[in-house]
C-alpha cells in the first residue's frame, strides 16, 4: 500500500487534489461505485476518497487517471476531457459553470477571461496555484490557448471545459489540442444556439 499523503499533510488546494476529486466525482456519478473501487484497488490506494482541500504528491492525478483509463477501457485523454465536461455540465457542480460564466457576456469574452482565472482563484484561496494561461488571438475568431501544468491531464480537462462552455454560450466551435501545451479554438458561429440562462445573482440554496 502506498501512502497517498506525504508527511507534510497540509490543508490547502492544489492541482492534483482538484483533478483527483473531479476524476472521482466523474467516475462515481457516471460509472458507479464498483468502477471507482476497482480503480482504487488497482492503483493500490490506501483510501477511496480524495479530498479537494488536502495535498497529494505531485503527479498523483496523472497516475490514477492512467489506472482509470485501463479500468474504463478508454484513452486517458478522453477520460480527462469527459472530466472537464462533467465539471461544467453536472447539475450538482453548478458552481463551476457559474464561476466560469462570470468571465463575460460572449464566448470570446470568456476565452479572454481565462488569463485572469489564476488571479480570480487566488482571491478565494490564496494558496491555490492554478496553471498560468495565455490566450492569443491569432486571427478573426481564431485563438490559441497555452497552459503550462505539471500534470499532463490539465490540457484535456481544459478542452472538455471549453467544449462544454461553448455549448453554454451557444457558440459553435472547433477545439483541438495542437501541442502538449497548446489548444486551438476556432469560433465558427458565436450565436449558433441559444445560450443557457445566467443571472449574476447567486441562486438561493
Amino acid at each position: 500500500m502506498q501512502s497517498m499523503l506525504g508527511p507534510e499533510r497540509k490543508v490547502g488546494m492544489d492541482m492534483d487534489a482538484l483533478m483527483l476529486r473531479s476524476l472521482q466525482g466523474y467516475v462515481l456519478d457516471t460509472f458507479g461505485l464498483a468502477s471507482w473501487q476497482e480503480i482504487c484497488r488497482r492503483a493500490e490506494l490506501s483510501v477511496e476518497t480524495f479530498e479537494p482541500m488536502l495535498r497529494y504528491d505531485p503527479g498523483t492525478a496523472d497516475r490514477i487517471a492512467q489506472v482509470a483509463a485501463q479500468v474504463l477501457g478508454r484513452p486517458v485523454e478522453a477520460v480527462w476531457e469527459d472530466v472537464g465536461t462533467y465539471l461544467v455540465t453536472n447539475p450538482d457542480r453548478e458552481g463551476v459553470r457559474r464561476l466560469l460564466r462570470f468571465g463575460g457576456m460572449s464566448y470570446a469574452d470568456f476565452l479572454h477571461s481565462l488569463e485572469e482565472l489564476p488571479g480570480r482563484a487566488r482571491l478565494a484561496m490564496p494558496d491555490l496555484d492554478l496553471p498560468e494561461v495565455t490566450l492569443d488571438e491569432v486571427g478573426p475568431d481564431q485563438f490559441e490557448l497555452r497552459c503550462q501544468s505539471h500534470l499532463a491531464g490539465t490540457q484535456r480537462v481544459l478542452v472538455g471545459m471549453l467544449t462544454a462552455m461553448a455549448d453554454d454560450y451557444g457558440a459553435l466551435c472547433l477545439i483541438e489540442p495542437v501541442a502538449a501545451d497548446c489548444t486551438k479554438i476556432s469560433v465558427l458561429d458565436s450565436r449558433h444556439s441559444k445560450a443557457r440562462a445566467f443571472a449574476l445573482a447567486m441562486p438561493e440554496r
Binding site: G95, F102, A121, L123, A124, M125, M202
Partner: peptide, 8 residues
Amino acid sequence: LYLAEANA
C-alpha cells in the same frame, strides 16, 4: 460577485 460565489 465572483469572489462572493467562489468563497461560498
